[in-house]
């Protein structure tokens, strides 16, 4: 009598199960790892039309972020400076440097410099810079250590998880208002001590500045 099912099929269900579990785990893991902004956006470092170094300007020379991004405290977006702002210094400093040719041309003709946008929340997200920087959220929290970057890269994921992590417990990420643009600042060199100080100070800030970090959908999606 011939077998309807040969003997090797005895192990088939087990093999299929194991295979399915392996493939399923790998797919889940793959999506989890690769299909979030932590992979998709973090590390994005496009070549900019002008080789502007934030490390030189903000760190080495100590220029405040708001010298150039002067609208950040008043506006929902943080402006890229006009060429005239660059030329306030560069009319004299490196006045003929070929690296700054585009800036000089923009200043003379009004033609915009085609900077490549790096940090971008989707158009259905309404993020307001001014409410954040005026309530003690530092630039460094969302943009990373910009003052150490020669070329800007996308340092933080800026996905919805990232926003909510802070909106659920805003206190620990708030700092004194005069330290907003001091990106190296922290409560203490000692990380544990800094965390406790941030927590107690944060509670005070949340209360005093009436921080209402809403978790309603309509806070950001309108």
């Amino acid at each position: 009598m011939s077998d309807t099912f040969p003997k090797w099929t005895n192990k088939l269900p087990a093999k299929v199960m194991v295979g399915a579990i392996l493939v399923g785990t790998a797919l889940t893991g793959g999506f989890w790892y690769y299909f979030t902004p932590k992979y998709v956006r973090v590390g994005y470092q496009p070549i900019q039309p002008v080789a502007f170094s934030h490390a030189i300007h903000a760190d080495q020379l100590g220029v405040d972020c708001r010298y150039c991004h002067n609208g950040v405290e008043k506006s929902w977006f943080s402006n890229i400076p006009a060429a005239s702002t660059c030329m306030n210094c560069h009319a004299q400093v490196l006045a003929t440097d070929p690296k700054l040719a585009l800036v000089r041309e923009s200043f003379k003709t009004g033609k915009p410099i085609p900077w490549v946008q790096i940090h971008k929340v989707p158009d259905y997200v309404f993020f307001n810079h001014s409410v954040h920087v005026n309530r003690g959220v530092s630039c460094v929290h969302c943009h990373g250590p910009v003052n150490k970057m020669d070329e800007i890269y996308h340092a933080k994921p800026l996905g919805m998880t990232f926003c909510l992590e802070c909106h659920r417990d805003p206190g620990k990420n708030l700092r004194p208002l005069d330290k907003i643009t001091d990106l190296d600042w922290s409560y203490s060199q000692d990380a544990v001590k800094a965390a406790t100080m941030a927590k107690s100070a944060g509670e005070k800030y949340v209360h005093d500045m009436k921080v209402n970090a809403s978790q309603n959908c309509s806070a950001c999606h309108r």
Partner: peptide, 13 residues
């Protein structure tokens, strides 16, 4: 695909 956080010139998907 590499790892999270690797610097890249490619614009995000």
């Amino acid at each position: 695909a590499g790892y999270r956080g690797t610097l890249t010139r490619k614009s995000p998907l």
